[in-house]
Amino acid sequence: MTSVAQTQASDQIPQGRQIPDRLRTPMQRALASWETLLLVVFALVFCINSFASPYFLDPWNLSDATFNFTEKAMIAFAMALLIISGEIDLSVASIIALASTAMGLAVQMGADTPALVGIGLLTGLLCGAVNGALITGLGLPSIVVTIGTMSLFRGISYIVLGDKAFTGYPDSFSWFGQGYVWWVFSFELVLFCLLAVAFGILLHATAFGRSVYAIGNNDVAALFSGIRVPRIKFGLFLLTGLMSGLAAVCLTSRLGATRPSIASGMELEVVTMVVLGGVNILGGSGSIAGVVIAALVMGLVTFGFGLLNVPGIVMSIFIGILLIAVIALPRLARRFFPRRAAS
Rank of each mutant, 00 (worst) to 15 (best):
V212A: 09
V212G: 10
I215K: 01
I215E: 00
G216Y: 14
N218P: 07
N218C: 13
D219T: 05
A221I: 03
A221Y: 05
A222L: 05
L223T: 14
L223D: 14
S225I: 05
G226I: 10
G226Y: 11
R228W: 06
R228D: 12
V229G: 05
V229E: 02
I232G: 01
F234I: 07
F234M: 13
G235M: 10
F237A: 01
F237G: 00
L239M: 15
L239C: 12
L239S: 09
T240Q: 00
G241C: 02
M243Q: 00
S244W: 00
G245M: 06
G245C: 04
A248M: 08
A248W: 03
V249M: 05
V249Y: 03
C250Q: 08
T252N: 09
L255A: 09
L255H: 02
G256F: 00
S261K: 12
I262Q: 01
A263L: 02
S264D: 13
E269G: 08
V270G: 01
V270D: 01
V270F: 01
V274T: 05
L276D: 01
L276M: 14
G277H: 06
G277P: 02
G277L: 04
G278V: 07
V279S: 04
V279H: 02
V279I: 11
V279L: 07
N280V: 01
N280D: 13
N280C: 03
L282W: 09
S285I: 00
G286H: 11
I288E: 04
I288L: 10
A289W: 13
A289L: 15
A289Y: 07
V291N: 05
V291K: 04
V291C: 10
V292D: 06
V292M: 14
A294T: 04
A295H: 01
L296Y: 02
V297Q: 03
T302V: 15
G304F: 06
G304P: 08
G306F: 04
L308D: 12
N309A: 13
N309T: 08
P311R: 11
P311T: 12
I313R: 06
I313P: 01
M315Y: 10
I319Q: 08
G320D: 10
V326F: 07
I327W: 06
A328G: 15
L329D: 05
P330A: 14
A333K: 14
A333S: 11
R334P: 05
R335N: 11
F336W: 11
P338W: 08
P338K: 09
R339Y: 04
R340K: 12
R340T: 08
R340S: 11
A341T: 13
